[in-house]
Amino acid sequence: MSDRALRITMIVLAVIGLGVASYLTYVHYSGIPPLCSTTHNTCLKVQTSIYSELAGVPVALIGLIGYLTILTSLLVPQREETRFASMAFVLVGFGFSAYLTSREALSLHEYCEWCLSSAAIMTVLACLSVWRFLRGDAPPSGDAAAAAAEPDAGAPLVAGS
């Protein structure tokens, strides 16, 4: 998978996550119950629980800011530092998301589908960002790199013939 394809995939995921976080932030401030497929609206229970805010700030808003930061780091010109920044932001988001999911499972015993979908997005983003960072500086593109390597590889043959 090329670096470009990885980056585009991550941008798409960050945009979807941004949409989820925006909806939950809107629901939080408007006071309307969130859409939920479960008949007893577990999303509402989670969204109005004591874990829906951190130091008075809605976790949905924290998520929205997080996704915006991740998206920004993916949209600026890419260098080693920006890949590192993307990975750092994503891992912080992943850790926070894991904490919130553990609260759903261990404290509330209720699950919010919106929160779980955001957690899933963060998990995939975390895997991709770590992979992308550890791969290091990608060649300009796969084909170009191969083309650039080709004359060098063939030099002795040409010289020896």
Binding site: H28, Y29, G31, Q47, T48, S52, E53, G56, P58
Partner: peptide
């Protein structure tokens, strides 16, 4: 408290 209170 805060916005959560308003929401509730």
């Amino acid at each position: 408290t805060g916005s959560k209170k308003n929401s509730t």
